[in-house]
Design a protein around this nucleic acid. Structure first.
Length: 576
RNA sequence: CGAGGUGUAGCGCAGUUUGGUAGCGCGUUUGGUUCGGGACCAAAAGGUCGCAGGUUCAAAUCCUGUCACCUCGACCA
């Protein structure tokens, strides 16, 4: 297509509210336009990138036997009541009523719809296993959006659902999908994406992995062990500690005025945070009753693990200084009110001498010993893994915490949906059985933004050719000169005729403007047609990442460019 | 949900303290000169100052309400 006809605008200045580079470049380059909070229009260049990604995803899903379907965006609430999620999911699910007053929801994920379909079309074990997937709009009313397409409310997602008659079969398929995902990320140009073990959150199920692109602008924290290769999402990473028992000492109440934080306490008493027992206060969402998690002073509470342990939702406690049921800043395990749920983290196990709050303003206990002073308690892992902490896999003090963007995930769901939704099949032995499921998601817009985030320079994105909006960008310097314009157009038509996607900048603008726009569009192969080049009888061909600059003769340019495009595509396992 | 902040031309901003009827840069249009990394000259178009009330002779500016958007926080008591 001709750039002069492209319906989009590129501009120089970064919009004021851009927080991360990919967002700024995608807005400046005319890929996306914000319509509302976390809601975007995709312009042609952006849509073309997404379409390329979709096609790669389709190829890989089809390759592992996936069958594409399309579930509805708007669904009756009754479907979600069947699984129990109409009640269990909070306000991130958009609910509304149709004209007859029936409750409706906008799909934020489609397990219910998948089971609704599958239970109707499948009735024999001979029909298993199978996987259905769709590429479709999701709406999640996120409390906070962020970073252009990184975290939005409306987005396009590939979501697949597999159905199996046994755990072994699910695991075998899960492994195939795991590899398919690795291929997808490699083919869209970010082979550095890693799969990490994760917490399955609201999706349910046991085993799950998230595919993470490590970058500082990521929202998630990943725990990595460079020694043994262990990696997990922070939410799922066990916290392993080596507890120094210390020497048992008598319990003693000490005056510690104003020491509300562990740091202040340690400074006053000349102890280390590892010798303290810290209270972190929460409240149950259901009835606001207090929950106190005690962890070693140097550690933090992993709220996900706490929720999983308690089996209910909690939020950090919000108390006024005056009417709190607990003594803020001086909370300890001894003498707590009856209605408080207490959780001891395993980092405290076996420590004979701790300093902790006395549940009295301006006082702490020293020499506190849980076994002696509280009795036998059960310890659970509710602490966050720590930078430099002990690797749960190899036991070395080697843990590394990094930020990452979750670009995809896979879950083993078990019968979380098939059972309540009453999906059954007739097994070989004639019995009625409930199948189990896996589900597999990739956020396409987020994936595009993620690629942009790690593949760019100061001037614009550097799209891998597999997902670039166009494959070749022809810059016509002095399009006002007839022979230059004709040479460019001839090349354009020749390349298009060979099935190559070309954008031709035929505008009568200065070279600076033209190159800047080309940089913002990030097309991998660039050809410059100019009076100078024609005089020399050779056009300039270069790659956006500057790894190649050649001047093939005019007559050979088309062949040269075609080969270049084919070679570059082949590197990413793609074809013309 | 809590705390801040911002809404003025397509984009980036000034003007608001001290009310007097809206401006700058980029972009856009026209004409001309230029022409290999965001050229220059000249002319021009484009805004009910987020919205609704109120105060006033007069409101972008003051008051009230409201909406939208952005950032931080959701935690270490």
């Amino acid at each position: 297509m001709y750039l002069s006809e492209l319906v989009s605008r590129r501009f120089k200045e970064t919009p004021a509210d851009c927080q991360i580079q990919s967002q700024a470049l995608m807005i400046r380059g005319g890929y996306i336009k914000a319509v509302g909070n976390g809601i975007y229009t995709l312009l042609t260049p952006g849509k073309r990138v997404i379409r390329k990604i979709e096609n790669i995803v389709r190829e890989e899903m089809d390759r592992i036997g996936g069958q594409e379907v399309l579930f509805p965006v708007a669904m009756p609430a009754s479907l979600w009541r069947e699984s129990g999620r109409y009640e269990s999911i909070g306000s991130e699910m958009l609910r509304f009523k149709d004209r007859s007053g029936s409750d409706m929801v906008l799909g934020m994920t489609h397990e219910e719809a998948a089971v609704h379909l599958a239970r109707d079309v499948v009735d024999s074990y001979t029909q298993f296993p199978f996987m259905i997937y769709q590429i479709q709009t999701k709406f999640r009313d996120e409390p906070r959006t962020r970073g252009g397409l990184i975290r939005v409310r409306e987005f396009t997602m590939k979501d697949g659902y597999s159905f199996h008659t046994s755990q072994e079969d699910l695991e075998a398929y899960y492994a195939r999908c795991y590899e398919a995902y690795n291929r997808i990320f490699a083919r869209v140009g970010i082979p550095q994406v890693v799969a990490v073990a994760s917490d399955s959150g609201m999706m349910g199920g046991k085993v799950s992995h998230e595919y993470m692109l490590l970058t500082d602008v990521g929202e998630d924290t990943i725990v990595l062990c460079p020694e043994c290769g262990y990696r997990a999402n922070m939410e799922a990473a066990p916290s392993v500690t080596q507890n120094e028992p210390g020497e048992e000492q008598p319990l003693q109440k000490v005056h510690t005025p104003g020491t509300k934080t562990i740091e202040e306490l340690c400074a006053l008493l000349h102890i280390t945070p590892e010798q303290t027992c810290k209270a972190v206060m929460y409240q149950r969402n259901a009835d606001d009753t207090p929950v106190v998690a005690f962890v070693r002073g140097d550690l933090d509470v992993n709220e996900t693990k706490l929720r999983n342990h308690l089996g209910c939702e909690v939020h950090p406690a919000v108390y006024d200084e005056e009417n709190a049921p607990l003594v803020l800043g001086f909370c300890g395990p001894m003498g707590l009110p009856q209605n408080v749920t207490v959780v001891f983290d395993s980092s405290l196990q076996g420590i004979e001498c701790l300093t902790t709050g006395a549940n009295e303003k301006d006082y702490h206990y020293t020499g506190f010993n849980i076994r002696r002073d509280v009795g036998e308690v059960s310890y659970v892992d509710v602490a966050k893994a720590k930078q430099g902490g002990v690797c749960p896999e190899c036991g070395r003090h080697s843990l590394d915490l990094k930020r990452g963007i979750e670009v995809g995930n896979i879950f083993q769901l078990g019968d979380k949906y098939t059972k309540p939704m009453n999906m059954r099949y007739l097994a070989q032995d004639g019995s009625l059985q409930t199948p189990i499921m896996g589900c597999y998601g990739i956020g396409l817009g987020r994936l595009a933004a993620s690629v942009c985030e790690v593949s760019r320079d100061d001037y614009g994105p550097i799209w891998p050719i597999s997902i670039a909006p166009w494959q070749v960008h022809i810059c016509v310097l002095r399009a006002d000169q007839t022979e230059v314009a004709q040479a460019a157009k001839a090349l354009y038509e020749e390349l298009e005729g060979r099935g190559i996607e070309v954008i031709l900048d035929d505008r009568a603008v200065s070279a600076g403007v033209m190159f800047s726009d080309a940089d913002l569009l990030g097309v991998p192969v660039r050809v410059v047609v100019s009076p100078r080049a024609l005089k020399n009888g050779a056009l300039e061909v270069s790659l956006r990442d500057k790894s190649l600059q050649e001047k093939p003769a005019v007559a050979e340019v088309a062949d040269f460019v075609e080969k270049l495009v084919r070679d570059e595509l082949a590197k990413l396992d793609c074809r013309l």
